[in-house]
């Protein structure tokens, strides 16, 4: 279990952010999946990942949980950036009216989540004193 009141605060903040990102993806998921499968399946994956991350953070949070959370959210942010930088309309752009505002909001939330998770990771004492060489 994470150490100290500061870490607990960070953990709760991360939980809120993960659920907020999940909420946005759950909100757009039904419409996106009906119109275009690739974005729909991706949003489903994000909703699952953020739901699992948020819940597990609610109940505690080891360093590896935070690390996985960082990796997952960095991946989600990179996919968002990539689909904005490289236009592959056949895969990533359904004809539906754009949800750009929500996409940007989710990305801001995910970026904040990455920062909080890194802070959380640093605030926590290592579980094992034994150091593994990398």
């Amino acid at each position: 279990m994470g150490g100290g009141a500061y870490a607990t605060k960070l953990r709760h903040l991360a939980t809120v952010l993960a659920f907020a990102s999940q909420g946005i993806h759950l909100w757009v998921l039904p419409g996106q999946l009906a119109a275009a499968m690739f974005p729909g399946i991706f949003f489903f994956g994000v909703a699952v990942g953020q739901g699992l991350l948020g819940t597990s953070l609610l109940f505690g949070g080891g360093r590896w949980r935070a690390r996985l959370g960082v990796l997952f959210n960095v991946f989600v942010i990179l996919v968002w950036l990539l689909t904005r930088a490289v236009s592959i309309p056949q895969l990533f752009e359904p004809i539906q009216l754009p949800v750009e505002g929500l996409g940007a909001a989710a990305t801001v939330i995910e970026s904040a989540l990455v920062v909080v998770l890194i802070a959380l990771q640093r605030s926590m004492p290592r579980k094992r004193k034994v150091r593994y060489t990398r």
Binding site: L33, G40, T55
Partner: peptide
């Protein structure tokens, strides 16, 4: 809770379009 938030909610969300 993890099953609920991580699986049941997203599955519920896709059940309508599917």
């Amino acid at each position: 809770a993890m099953a609920g938030a991580g699986l049941a909610l997203p599955l519920g969300a896709i059940s309508v379009p599917v």
